[in-house]
Nucleic acid binder design. Structure first.
Length: 469
RNA sequence: GGCGGGGUAGCCAAGUGGUAAGGCCGGGCUCUGCAAAAGCCCCAUGCGACGGUUCGAUUCCGUCCCCCGCCUCCA
């Protein structure tokens, strides 16, 4: 089966074929963060989905060129900078750094580039696009100095979201401060400077101002990936108006031959404990919040990745707990398999059926089906090891398979490079000695001492295993 | 109102016109000096409601109910 995804544009499932044909580079544009604050767990749901997509594409042999933008100028960033009395760059810098740190914690693959909206190169490209749109009659400057996209000039507007502008005539929704626009739905390409913008602004042919949000993505996407992009991802809330606007801008400013994007993919939102995540409800989490609660990046990753991207995800404490338990099971299985394979230099290929992990993902990233294959394989091979029926070569074959599986899931245990504290190591050594002398009472006392220090001890047939409790 | 996504066991969640994957929780057992851990087994005559088509529907059709999102630069 070929790799297929549900294309928002056509609302049908389609095989992914790069623009240049199979074997050619596949361009992937993923909407990135607006760095006015720490990204929240809902943002990361989208990024984890995109990571799964990229990893699976690569596993299937696609050569992926991915770009993710950083929006570092908009209403919120300006408001934050002005409120803090610092420059826009000073304000956004820590949030940019936090974003990359969080992305690493969640094991997200790096994109090829992370263009920033305030980059002079990008600003210049935005102005160039706006100029073209003006020249072609797709944009106009209003009385307030702002430049707007003239939606009436683009009959295809609404094709992605399938909205009918006829049904949204100006009326109850006209904001009082938008009187200068020709039509309500016209959106800003260039926002003219206002006092609230403080020191933020760029000189342009239309006066001092700043770019509109939609034009940022349009300019960065086409500038780095070309006028036609293969796949463009984002959250469902971006379908309208953001992505609709991007289509309008790109297809009107470009050479007009090809579509801006060939495959649109959108992930659903997540909820927290059954409710919409909102600051007012007190269920608004950043990754940092979760780490502070004792969860690890890979546990959060598992919780986010294990629900199909188009289904709304109910993010709960129970779900995180389930992630922790399931990961522990995978870890234990991997360790056991590694030991079973130790004496084998060769590997026997596993049953072909476990390739079902990948064919499930081929079907619009059916992660549930894929995980089912993984856990069935875990149970079946555990059963064989219980019975002493799994040969070392078979174990090695399974390990190699799991290596490919993990290339997509990225759920391996964290590297615990840290040395054990000296006193802990001493207690462990003492206990090992006591155990070999069968001094159970002393052994138990030492275990209690370790527990008091915050260490959890487990006796396995290969000796003591310790972890932080 | 318009557009879109959903309602499957306590929770999360696949899937098929032919009698319900997987994960977590729970129960049982095995192993172990004990404990913990780990492993195996069990766990929905039922798939929002009501009609219809069919030999047979959770899966197809119709009607209805409920949840979530977008239509206000929020993933």
């Amino acid at each position: 089966m070929s790799l297929q995804i549900l294309n928002t544009l056509t609302r049908t499932q389609q095989e992914i074929i790069p623009r240049g044909g199979l074997g050619h580079t596949l361009s992937l544009y993923t909407c990135g963060p607006t760095v006015y604050s720490y990204a929240h767990i809902g943002n990361f749901r989208a990024y984890v989905f995109e990571d799964l997509l990229q990893r699976h594409l690569q596993t299937r042999g696609f050569i992926v060129r991915r770009v993710m933008n950083i929006t570092d100028v908009d209403d919120k960033t300006i408001r934050g900078a002005v409120a803090a009395g610092i420059s826009l760059a000073e304000f956004t810098q820590p949030f940019k750094e936090a974003f990359f740190a969080d992305a690493q914690t969640l094991r997200l693959l790096r994109a090829e580039s992370y263009p920033e909206a305030t980059d002079p190169v990008q600003i210049a490209r935005m102005m160039s696009m706006i100029t073209t749109l003006m020249e072609r009659g797709h944009a106009y400057q209003a009385e307030d100095g702002s430049v707007y996209f003239r939606i009436a000039s683009f009959p295809n507007y609404g094709k992605l979201a399938r909205v009918d502008l006829e049904g949204q005539r100006p009326g109850q929704r006209v904001a009082s401060d938008e009187y200068e626009k020709e039509a309500v739905a016209d959106f800003a390409l260039w926002k003219s400077w206002v006092p609230e913008d403080g020191g933020v602004g760029w000189e342009s042919p239309w006066g001092k101002g700043r770019p509109g949000w939609h034009i940022e993505c349009s300019a960065m996407a086409t500038g780095l990936l070309g006028e036609t992009i293969d796949i463009h991802c984002g959250g469902v809330d971006n379908i309208f108006p953001h992505h609709e606007a991007e289509i309008a801008q790109c297809e009107c400013a470009g050479h007009g031959v090809a579509p801006f994007v060939r495959y649109w993919m959108h992930c659903a939102h997540l909820m927290v404990e059954g409710s919409k995540m909102a600051k007012s409800q007190g269920n608004f989490y950043t990754l940092r919040d979760l780490l502070a609660q004792g969860w690890t990046g890979r546990e959060v990753r598992y919780a986010l990745i294990s629900v199909h991207y188009r289904a709304s995800l109910n993010f709960t404490r129970e779900g995180l707990g389930a992630a922790r338990t399931a990961l522990a099971r995978l870890d234990a299985w991997f360790l056991r398999l590694t030991e079973a394979a130790a004496e084998s230099a060769t590997s026997d290929p596993p049953d072909q059926s476990i390739e079902g992990f990948f064919t499930a993902l081929d079907d619009d990233l059916n992660i549930s089906g894929a995980l089912a294959v993984l856990f069935e394989t875990v149970r079946e091979s555990n059963r064989m090891m219980d019975q002493g029926m799994l040969t070392p070569a078979q174990a090695r074959g399974l390990l190699e398979w799991y290596g490919r599986v993990n290339g997509v899931l990225a759920l391996e245990p964290d590297q615990s490079a840290d040395q054990l504290p000296v006193e802990v190591q001493q207690l462990l050594d003492d206990r090992a000695a006591a155990r070999s002398a069968k001094e159970w009472k002393k052994s138990d006392e030492l275990r209690d001492q370790l527990a008091a220090l915050g260490w959890l001890l487990k006796d396995t047939k290969d000796g003591q295993r310790i972890s932080k409790s």
